[in-house]
Design a protein around this nucleic acid. Structure first.
Lengths: 227, 227
DNA sequence: CCAATCTTCAACTGTTATATTTAATGATAG
DNA sequence: CTATCATTAAATATAACAGTTGAAGATTGG
């Protein structure tokens, strides 16, 4: 009986290891970050990652075998999405542990992210309070599909690709909060720096829509505010 | 600039993947479960896993490189421990996701664990409430070192190895709650079944001491109650 | 039904990794 | 200096990985 216990535990933990193994590749982590924003097709995901469609499909299937994503056929294409909200939380937990206990990550994050924030990023809860106190321009710089799949209430949509070429003209004293996919997405950082150079008062929201949702805050899914 | 962003993201996510990779082996998950109970020496850990000391040492170093464990020399031996409480939480989150989204895990857990619970296991918060209402015999069936490193307040220590050979003699109507390392540790299940066969009213606490601690509940670190 | 589109599969390359054991080496305490 | 405990090295065996290209499946629109 104690013998079966040991092998049972072995079998169980091997399954857990399978899930961890699915997380153990930078492209698959990128895929999960993208899918946390909403459903996407294989071809589009391949485009974001800059690798072949076949390779992307194989990564997706590894994630699927680990139960982290599910797919459904729509027309002649196939849409992938996270199998649940806990998946996005798991990835965030992984990244948080890496950041606090791996010096190399701490260094990378410091160099690439913290040094580019003109002031410390704002967290979801703080933002909710800030909105009550003063008018804030909320800026979503993700691609259109992700904005449409859900964005912060009242957020304007100005994807980084457009913002980059057509600088906005708001009243100079506007308070702007810009956000993208999450704490490790670089889109908001680019926008932040561009707007800062133009003299705007601008801060970055550290969290993305998935985390905002997880906290139980309201999300808008229509297209109001598209620039 | 957008080019550096992509390679920066790549570098960052590769580091995250390194942490996931450290989690991706059943022996290393077992090690983390053991270390979540407290500091341990390499030789002892090897004994629990049933593998060689050298192999155990190598697994520990992979965990160390990923920042999940730290070590300190004590005399001529070396004690390993988790690098922080978030590590145990991360492992639990991983296991939870696996359980809810992998059918094979769901099946294993159902067969090996849920079917052996005579009634649904109790959670930490419920147990706290239960203790207020009626007298409960709290039973810690982990090895002595783990009990000494921290146990539930007032818990008796009766390791499974002893319980197995010397059945206890309590008043027959005692309410007993037995616990071990966590939701996927088999020690408490063995004890549960043994006590149930002897006619006791007995339930299993699903959480272990690490989770109990995480919830901010008090933990006893002295040796009161050793049988 | 045919042709176009999107995805998966199969085959292949090249590279790299893994876990494990035994034995040697290091380090520390007594 | 010796006994103890841990790390490292060497070696083996096994296998896995990611990525590409090109063919095969599946589904829709005409």
């Amino acid at each position: 009986m104690s013998l079966t216990s040991r092998s049972d535990q072995h079998a169980l933990f091997s399954q857990f290891a399978l899930v961890a193994d699915a997380l153990a590749h930078c492209h698959r982590l990128s895929l999960l970050e993208l899918l946390a924003q909403g459903e996407r097709r294989v071809e589009v995901l391949a485009g974001f990652l800059g690798i072949s469609i076949a390779s992307t499909s194989q990564h997706l299937q590894k994630l699927k075998r680990a139960g982290l994503v599910v797919d459904r056929p729509v027309g002649r294409q196939r849409l992938y999405r996270l199998s649940g909200n806990q998946v996005a939380s798991l990835v965030l937990a992984l990244e948080k542990v890496a950041e606090t206990s791996l010096a190399s990550v701490e260094k990378l994050v410091g160099e690439q992210i913290r040094s580019r924030d003109v002031e410390p990023p704002i967290r979801a809860a703080e933002l909710r309070a800030l909105i009550e106190r003063e008018p804030v321009v909320l800026l979503d710089v993700r691609p259109a599909e992700e904005y449409l799949a859900g964005h912060l209430p009242g957020a304007l949509h100005l994807p980084w690709e457009r913002l980059r070429h057509e600088p906005p003209t708001w009243p100079a004293d506007s308070m702007i909060v810009v956000y993208c996919r999450g704490p490790y997405c670089f889109l908001a950082l680019e926008a932040l720096q561009a707007l800062h150079r133009q003299g705007y008062r601008v801060r970055r929201l550290e969290d993305g829509v998935p985390e905002w949702r997880r906290l139980g805050f309201p999300v808008e899914e229509d297209a109001r505010g598209v620039a």
